[in-house]
Structures are given as structure tokens and as C-alpha cells.
Computed example of a mutant assay.
Amino acid sequence: MKRWSVVMAAVALCAGCEGNKKEDRPTRAQLRRTGPATVEVVPTDGQLPYCMLYTVSEKGVIRQLTLTRENRSIRCDPKKPVANTSFRIPVQEGKVRMYIFFSDDRIPAGPVAQQLYDLRGQDRINAMDLRLPGRVFVETLEFTPEESSPPVTGGVVGAGGELVDGGTSGGANGNGNAAPGTGVPVLADGGTLGGPAATEEAP
């Protein structure tokens, strides 16, 4: 009976150690929400110098976010947003799992995209699942886009105090004309697997 108690105590101790290991695992990148459906990806210190980003949505849509003319990984500096921009995640596709591939050299995106497509049904993907040259680490994060409320500009008041224009919403200006874009590049839109490039390579 005493031996059985010792064995159970050892098992509980080991389980606790394993849980601590998972909690203590360093995060290679962090997500910063910049809007209801936009997000920045920021590498932490000590990561490999190049990276590329993909998302896999709840509906199975795979998007390549870091698109360049050469279609290779880009320079990713620690504590700076990848590509110096925010990425917009389509709300209609639901929550996404974001894969950040860090590498010690610039690697072509084609083989990564193909392998990610082949492994899309797998719950988690790590570097051991991929056949890529050099050193490669994978960070997996999740992001849920949310619907944004359309802005309301109010009504234009004339000299007599009457409303000249009843006001607009949904991104139009006070004159009833469509307002310009917000300046957030829609890198995810048009960036479905195999789609055209939507941005230049970050310096």
C-alpha cells in the first residue's frame, strides 16, 4: 500500500512538471489587435531573422499574408510588426490559426504553402512536419476577427440651423461621398493560396 502511494505521488509530481514546461515555453511572436478584424504580428527577441505568415481559417481557407514578388520569406525584426503593417482577417471566414515560420535563411514560400495545404486537417503543425532547408521554427497563434461598427458622421447643418444633409454612415463623409480608405493594407484579401501578390517585400 505504501509503495502504491509513492508511485501515485511520483506520477502527480511528473504531471505537474510537464504542465510547467508547457507554460514556460517561450512565445516566438505576439499578436497585437489593431482593429476589430486587423492584427499585427510582432516577433519576440532571439528569433531567426526571416519569417513568413499563413492563416488557416475555421472554414478551411488558407491565406499567405507575407506576399512578395520573389515569393520568399521576408526579414522580420524583433519587436517590430512583420512587414511594418497590419493584416486584415476576413470576418466571414471565422477564427484563424496563424502560422509564423521563422528561418535562418530566406526560403521559398511555394513548398511551405504546399505542405501546409497537405497538413491542413492536422490540429497542430510544427517544424518536424515540414521538409524545409536550414533551421525552421513554427509559432502557432489564434485570432478571432470581429465585425466593426460603421462610423457615423452626423448631419450637415445649414445657415438657418436646418439639416442640409441627414448624415451618413458606413464610411461616407459629410457630403455624402464615399470616404477614403483607412490606410490599413488589406494584405489578407487577395492573398489566398496561389493568389496575386498584394504587397512589396519589407526592407
Rank of each mutant, 00 (worst) to 15 (best):
L119G: 12
G121R: 14
R131H: 15
P133E: 09
Q92D: 15
T55W: 09
V152I: 04
R106C: 10
R75T: 10
Y50R: 01
K80I: 11
V157G: 03
C51A: 15
T140L: 01
L53T: 03
G160Q: 02
E146F: 02
T66F: 02
K79E: 14
P151E: 04
P150F: 00
Q122L: 07
Y99N: 06
Y117I: 09
V91R: 13
I62M: 13
V82M: 10
P111H: 07
L163A: 15
R63P: 09
Q115W: 01
A172Q: 08
T55R: 05
M128R: 13
A113Q: 04
S73F: 01
R106A: 12
I107C: 06
V91M: 08
P90S: 04
D129W: 01
V138K: 01
Q92G: 06
S149A: 15
R97K: 14
S103W: 03
P133L: 05
E70C: 09
F137H: 05
T144C: 02
L48I: 04
T66Q: 05
E162A: 13
P49K: 02
K59I: 03
R72L: 06
P111A: 06
N175H: 12
N126V: 12
L67A: 07
L132Q: 02
I100R: 01
V96Y: 09
P81G: 11
G170Y: 06
L48R: 09
S148W: 05
S169V: 00
E162H: 13
A172M: 14
C51Q: 03
G160S: 02
Y54K: 05
C51F: 01
V156D: 04
P150G: 05
R120H: 11
Q114K: 14
S149G: 05
D45P: 00
P81V: 11
I107L: 10
S149N: 11
R106P: 01
Y50P: 00
D118K: 10
L119M: 13
K80F: 06
L119R: 15
I100A: 13
P145W: 01
G154M: 04
A109D: 10
P111G: 08
G160N: 07
A178K: 15
E139W: 00
K59D: 11
L67H: 08
V112K: 02
L130S: 10
V82K: 03
R69W: 11
N175S: 14
G166T: 03
T55Q: 06
R72C: 09
P90R: 04
